[in-house]
């Protein structure tokens, strides 16, 4: 059974996701997990610049964006995507309290710790922020 995650009111739409993270192991695990949960992972990027480019080209519903990237900060990428149609979810293996006020002031839709990533937590966050 495939659960149809929702970003909007249309429950039958399969959401497209772009994963931006410089750790290949995380990208691979997250892709498998999200695809199992019914998301369509349309692309992966290993740094901020290629993440921005892919986000503008693919226009995914969701960008799962790591905060610590090798070139730009994930917070900066989120800021530059604030006018894009995609919703941005920031991720990190650190806790929000370790990320300071810049996370609170970010224009991203929300934050999810990497080790908490699952279909349920994502769904709950998307519903909360819908």
């Amino acid at each position: 059974m495939v659960i149809r995650p929702a970003l909007c009111d249309d429950w039958n739409v399969q959401l497209t996701v772009l994963i931006v993270d410089d750790h290949p192991a995380f990208r691979a695990s997250a892709r498998t997990l999200l695809e199992d949960e019914g998301y369509e992972v349309v692309g992966e990027a290993e740094d901020g610049e290629s993440g921005l480019r892919l986000a503008r080209t693919l226009e995914p519903d969701l960008v799962l964006l790591d905060i610590a990237l090798p070139d730009l900060s994930g917070l900066e990428v989120a800021e530059r995507l604030s006018d894009a149609p995609s919703k941005v979810l920031l991720t990190s293996s650190r806790r929000p309290s370790d990320l300071g006020p810049r996370l609170r002031n970010s224009s991203a839709l929300g934050f999810i710790s990497k080790d908490d990533l699952s279909g349920e937590t994502l769904e709950a966050l998307l519903r909360e922020r819908a």
Partner: peptide, 8 residues
Amino acid sequence: QRLVALAL
């Protein structure tokens, strides 16, 4: 990062 990937 490896432990996080393993958990996922």
